[in-house]
Amino acid sequence: MNPARLIEYWPQLWEGLLVTLQISAATLILATPVALLIAILREARVPVVNALLIVAVNAVRLLPAVIVLFFVFYGGPQLGLSLSPMAAAIIGLSVMGAAYMSEDIRAGLSAVDRGQYQAARALGLSPARIFCRIIIPQAIPLIVPPYMTRAIIMVKGSSLASMVAVGELTAAASRASSITYDPFTFILFAGALYLIISGALVLFQAWAERHLRRRYRLTPGGR
């Protein structure tokens, strides 16, 4: 462990950290609404759409993330769209994240008591209203824990962007390691930074769960 080296390579590491934060934020912001849309469409069970989504979600879920990233980065130009490494990484990781998250969200939506749909429909409420006002608010407390776990996995997964030449935190730390032959210092430091980011998400999750319990008067596991 050599703190002097950290100071020497700080500009690159700082740059890498910023890129990691950017990728993480971008993938979460892109993946979440897409995942929600997929989950809602799956729940609505429109015959053909549902079948297509099952195939698409599983295709992505069953592939290694690196393969998906390579596919976007190297395959993109073949399909006529030339993407910067950063854009390719964000698209690939968002696609992965959306596929996984859609399953987390779907599980939460389908865990809401069927009687809630029946009561809401019997009152004449429209499907959109039922979803926004009745189902989603009840599903959110169920979705938050798996969603946040997924968000943490996605933040850590941003390190895969180094595979398509994005200079994010892992790439910066690994480059500094190979120049200085001091992997211990840099990898440990990078690990600590990941721990801080993930830790912040864990704290946010705890706060969100507490807030939701109060907001909806929920007792754990209760109605």
């Binding site: 008591d113 009561a119 809401a120 009840q138 909806y216 008067r217 929920l218």
Partner: peptide
């Protein structure tokens, strides 16, 4: 039978 009030 199960009331189905909106719990939130």
């Amino acid at each position: 039978q199960q009331f189905n009030l909106f719990p939130h």
